[in-house]
């Protein structure tokens, strides 16, 4: 018998603390599989955010850092400048990356820092109790937009991939989704390409992953994936916003 599917080696064998049906777990697996396939476990360095995925430093079995809220790109900059041969990635949520850490992500991209960002966009602050995120959709109800997000009060959702893709330092920017198996497979390809762009020294790379939060959206895990497809993707279109013509 041949194993068709089993746990990637870069992922420590321990249960995740995530809620049932939360797609963080799938993204963790994809990143770990990419690390395994590129054979970079020994020089991989993870930078964990503040948010639901703060403990990802426990799950990725490589060396890791826990950064202050929003500052993972600055921490990753310090690491990669000291260790240019390492393969560095940050793993950040939408509050971490698109609100408090906006300056750090923009300037890391602008400088063309050679690390990879895995950006989880689930349109909500999950760990702190379902508050509005910068990526919360218009009309979406959260604990701090109980009547739905109103652009007159809260402005409109932030499209990070589109914003970052206009910067010269950004080499690879892609938005993918977790809403079905075909898109999970595409997400893996994008993550792999982002790591390859980093390793080729071509510049900053980021993969934005539309991810579900059944708990704070108040939906079943299955319905939450439908919600990504029906509500999020029309506002956050999938695809590569920037990619090198070839990965050297």
């Amino acid at each position: 018998m041949k194993k068709i599917f089993s746990r990637p080696e870069s992922l420590k064998d321990m249960p995740f603390h995530y809620c049932p049906g939360c797609t963080h777990g799938i993204v963790h697996r994809l990143v770990a599989e990419v690390i395994d396939e590129l054979d970079v476990f020994d020089r991989a360095i993870a930078v964990a955010p503040v948010g639901c995925s703060v403990f990802c430093y426990e799950y990725f079995d490589c060396d890791a850092y826990q950064a202050s809220h929003g500052r993972a790109p600055a921490v990753a900059t310090g690491i990669k400048r000291v260790l240019p041969g390492s393969v560095v990635f940050t793993y950040q949520g939408d509050g971490d990356l698109a609100a408090i850490g906006t300056a750090e992500i923009i300037h890391a991209a602008a400088r063309g820092e050679k690390f990879t960002v895995i950006f989880i966009n689930n349109a909500i602050y999950a760990m702190t109790g379902g508050q509005m995120a910068p990526t919360t959709l218009l009309g979406q109800k959260t604990t701090t937009t109980p009547f739905g997000r109103d652009s007159e009060i809260n402005g409109s959702p932030v499209k990070m991939s589109e914003m970052l893709s206009v910067l010269d330092g950004a080499a690879y920017i892609s938005r993918v989704s977790m809403h079905n198996p075909a898109n999970v497979a595409k997400a893996k390809k994008a993550i792999k390409k982002a790591f390859e762009v980093q390793m080729a020294g071509q510049g900053f790379s980021m993969v934005e992953v539309l991810s579900s939060c059944p708990t704070n959206w108040g939906l079943s895990p299955v319905k939450a994936l439908k919600w990504i497809e029906e509500k999020m993707i029309p506002y956050y279109p999938l695809g590569e916003f920037k990619a090198p013509s070839e990965v050297v």
């Binding site: 018998m1 041949k2 194993k3 068709i4 599917f5 089993s6 746990r7 992922l11 249960p15 995740f16 995530y18 049906g21 939360c22 797609t23 963080h24 777990g25 799938i26 697996r29 079905n180 198996p181 999970v184 497979a185």
Partner: peptide, 11 residues
């Protein structure tokens, strides 16, 4: 591949 908790192994 859709399991967020890596519960399933396939051979």
């Amino acid at each position: 591949r859709m399991c967020p908790d890596m519960v399933i192994e396939v051979e």
